[in-house]
Design a protein around this nucleic acid. Structure first.
Lengths: 355, 355
DNA sequence: TCCCGAAGTTCGATTTAAATG
DNA sequence: GCATTTAAATCGAACTTCGGG
């Protein structure tokens, strides 16, 4: 409650207080081009009045003329997923630099929620949309949904190839190759795999990388040592699934010296199953994950994994968005960017030479 | 690009298309009181026009008259902290039910960033403010900052007692007592403590709970077995600190059968130090954390801890906010709410009877 | 013409008051 | 007075145009 009317201070209040017109106040406070004609004394007077009244320009009213809401929608598929948080941090940080504010939407992996949120964000006139498709469902129809909208959109985490939607993703194939190369050079030959859900594109890409490496080295991949995670939506389930699939693997009584899991949560589940079966890691079995999610560094033994530069990916998405805005401001065409970022091997305690 | 001008469809476009005035269109689409006088046929006609054009009401323009931005600022001290995410989920979920959208701000534990974000949120006319003070610094001045603003504010995670700011927090004292009661009943008498940073209020409360229980049971607390975490801002550092303090504790060569850590990250660090020193958990030493953060369930052994109902706390904050909005709508007074939620003991693998 | 400042219009919606039959 | 519809004012800021010294 800052003035007599009990509502917020407006530019009119500042005008009245300073004795100048709203126009002059607006020009001064925004340091508009015309401000150079205004004598310093007038400026000081107006600035003082604004300060005294605690004037805070109303960005929503400003939007009406400028059409710039200085806001972007950030749609996450599940904020509870540890994969999401570092990406969010990257997005937030870069947005902050650019004076944008993120409006957060969490789809809970539900299509209907995704659509409702999309509508809400559009009604709020976000200038862009960043979708963190961490887990499942870079669903073909959702993308179609997005393409129809005329605002710049960046998808993080899915290697997509549409013409109008930008994307940022790790190079999954290279990541997988990095793992195999490392294990192979340690001397591992009998390697088990907990592959990702079939519906996930990253799952396929990683497997391609595995096969490419195996082929080039003449390494045989034993089909009996390859299992698939179920097509589930819940990120927590991948820990459970990792545990259960590893038990199943152990029951097959087929020797392996290393286990490559689809992601870190799966690997953590595997670690637990191995501990229960009294298989020592890495002495008797090496374990590798993928993502380098926070808990990977905390486990005992800590997890060797492939790091996705998540924070960087978030920043990259924002910088694509910013470029796209700049282009449309200058009425330039802006071709969709598909940025692939490099994965990195992080060696920790869960891997070693086979005994 | 939805119409000839290349800009968004407005209510005027719908008016033109349907042949009615903007007033009528507005009344129909909002189902305003006057809508009962409008014949169904007119309604249908207008709704069809709106659909055909793909009309999406501009919430920002709407705000100008209604003063309702349908938006709340969510200020987090560090989104990277695993304590934050479940709270965010709770906030998001309840806000969604109420058709509000969260605008996210991450202070990175920096005061200047907090202030800048606060300013940005206020300029965007958020209707309320929810502050997740997960880690440090329910700083006296920050609160003063908040009190000056005239919008409803809820702080989660700090037990504060101001008159104008609402709060939601676990009952830390009870939580600590729960731990002691449990360990004592298992037979533990020599218990070591890794206390929280001195500046944190929760740290003091928990210690009060510990002492109260010890006193009531005639249990002696050995000062040589009590260490303090440093006053650091980085949540990751609590893992490091837990590791280092435990090593120091071990070096003191003073026997203890259980270790109570300030929070889960500290406990996880302790687990690692104990493993390195070949102290078996729980056989030789039980370990208890606090919070029940996601990694606590994933570790080996999994961590016994005190659960803060984080998602519930997020929801509670939103419901306080909603009540406060309702009250001001009806011009009722709304006294600050200080809600204390009950902690819960979660027994996992890291605790057992002393041998 | 150059400075300085103000009046008036605009953005997209809601709402009040009023005009029809 | 009633049912139906609408013109005009309004919200807060920015921008265009105009006038006086």
């Amino acid at each position: 409650m800052n003035n007599a009317k009990g509502s917020a201070v407006t530019i009119r209040d500042v005008a009245r207080e300073s004795g100048f017109s709203v126009t002059t106040v607006s020009i001064v406070l925004n340091d508009a081009p015309l401000a150079r004609y205004i004598p310093p004394q007038t400026k000081r007077c107006i600035e003082k009045a604004a300060r005294d009244l605690g004037y805070r320009p109303n960005q929503l009213a400003r939007y009406l003329r400028s059409k710039k809401s200085q806001t972007v929608g950030v749609m996450v598929f599940d904020i509870t997923d540890p994969f999401c948080t570092p990406i969010l941090r990257g997005i937030e940080n870069s947005l902050y630099q650019a004076s944008y504010l993120p409006v957060l939407a969490d789809a809970h992996n539900e299509r209907s929620r995704f659509e409702r949120y999309l509508e809400m964000l559009l009604e709020r006139r976000v200038e862009g949309l960043i979708v963190v498709a961490n887990w499942l469902l870079v669903d073909i129809n959702l993308l179609a949904d997005l393409e129809k909208r005329s605002i710049p959109t960046v998808v993080i985490g899915g290697e997509i190839q549409t013409e109008s939607i930008n994307s940022v993703a790790v190079d999954n194939e290279t990541g997988a190759r990095l793992i195999l190369d490392y294990l192979y050079s340690l001397g591992h030959r009998k390697i088990a795999f907990l592959r990702g859900p079939k519906r996930l594109s990253s799952s396929g890409k990683r497997w391609t990388g595995v096969r490419a490496f195996a082929h080039s080295m003449g390494l045989r991949l034993d089909p009996k040592l390859v299992l698939h995670l179920p097509d589930s939506l819940d990120p927590n389930s991948s820990f459970e699934a990792g545990y259960e699939l590893t038990e199943e693997l152990l029951n097959r009584r087929r020797a392996f010296t290393a286990l490559v899991a689809y992601d870190d949560m799966t690997a953590l589940g595997a670690l637990r199953a191995l501990a229960k079966a009294r298989v020592r890691v890495p002495a008797q079995c090496s374990v590798v994950g993928f993502d380098d999610v926070a808990p990977a560094a905390l486990s005992l033994p800590s997890l060797t994994t492939i790091r996705q530069p998540m924070e960087t990916m978030g920043s990259a998405a924002v910088s694509i968005f910013v470029d796209s805005i700049k282009a449309s401001l200058q009425k330039r065409e802006f071709a969709a960017v598909h940025r692939k970022v490099a994965p990195e091997l992080v060696v920790r305690e869960s891997t070693g030479a086979p005994s």
